[in-house]
């Protein structure tokens, strides 16, 4: 726990331009003796236009943190802000609308609806919201992820990497305030994974997108601008401009 001292210093930083802010976030599963404290009071903020990776050993609470930040799961205590909206007071309908308007998702697997073509999958969030896709943006996004000739295919006819690229395009198309990616490369071979990650980084640097990514892969994390580390439901460390080696070293220190 030697590293915890640093937390206060960096968590306050960048609040002015923060896309997502969490304060005193706690999450408890179950009750009484069976209670599991997944998050024990997390204070963190994610700067707009930055690519942040959340890392930590299994059971550290990194997925739970992401679910709570994205309004997919309810919190037990604390506050979450997405932009100027506080999530913790919202009901299911408001949360749904918030996700629809401001958040994009990329999951590890099962990102696409099997009945829809790639293009339909990309446009799905806009259609759910009843919005028209910006033609230029659509073209740019499709160009960025290199799916121009695959738009008419169903997911079953695409490779794993292509499927994830469709998922990336889908997350980008609605210009969300923040994209949450949960192990987006977990199911991919290293080449496809690298492709997907560089698309994510490109979208941050060229389109000004904010991305928060959960991963356990140091190489994946090294694509991010910043890596934060969780252990036992607490933020314990962070790295700016990480390399695979520096991420690995920090992890080793945490495991020890």
């Amino acid at each position: 726990m030697t590293i915890t001292g640093e937390v206060g210093a960096w968590s306050a930083r960048g609040d002015a331009a923060a896309a997502v802010v969490a304060r005193g976030l706690t999450k408890v599963y179950g009750q009484g003796d069976a209670a599991v404290h997944a998050l024990r009071g997390v204070d963190i903020s994610f700067a707009t236009g930055a690519f942040t990776a959340i890392m930590g050993p299994s059971g550290s609470g990194k997925s739970t943190l992401m679910h709570c930040l994205a309004g997919l799961d309810t919190v037990s205590g604390g506050q979450v802000h997405i932009g100027d909206v506080e999530l913790t007071g919202l009901n299911d309908k408001q949360l749904t609308l918030l996700r629809r308007e401001r958040i994009g998702f990329i999951f590890q697997a099962f990102n696409l609806l099997p009945t829809l073509t790639a293009e339909q999958n990309i446009r799905l969030p806009l259609e759910i919201a009843g919005r028209q896709a910006d033609r230029d943006l659509f073209d740019r996004v499709v160009e960025t992820v290199g799916l121009r000739d695959r738009l008419g295919h169903k997911p079953a006819e695409l490779s794993g990497g292509q499927q994830q690229r469709v998922a990336v395009a889908r997350a980008l198309i609605s210009k969300p305030q923040v994209i949450f990616a949960d192990e987006p490369t977990g199911n991919l071979d290293s080449r496809s994974g690298a492709e997907v990650l560089s698309f994510l980084r490109t979208s941050v640097h060229e389109l000004g997108q904010t991305i928060v990514m959960v991963t356990h892969d140091p190489v994946a994390a090294s694509y991010a601008d910043r890596v934060v580390f969780l252990r036992d439901g607490l933020l314990v460390s962070e790295l700016v401009k990480p390399t695979p080696q520096s991420v690995l070293d920090t992890l080793m220190k945490l495991e020890a």
């Binding site: 994205a70 997919l72 299911d92 309908k93 749904t96 609308l97 996700r99 629809r100 308007e101 998702f105 999951f107 099962f110 990102n111 609806l113 099997p114 799905l124 969030p125 759910i128 919201a129 889908r170």
Partner: peptide, 16 residues
Amino acid sequence: TRESALLRALGLTRPQ
């Protein structure tokens, strides 16, 4: 189940 969850995550409301 997972498909429904994905749709909900993407902003499909419960009534929808």
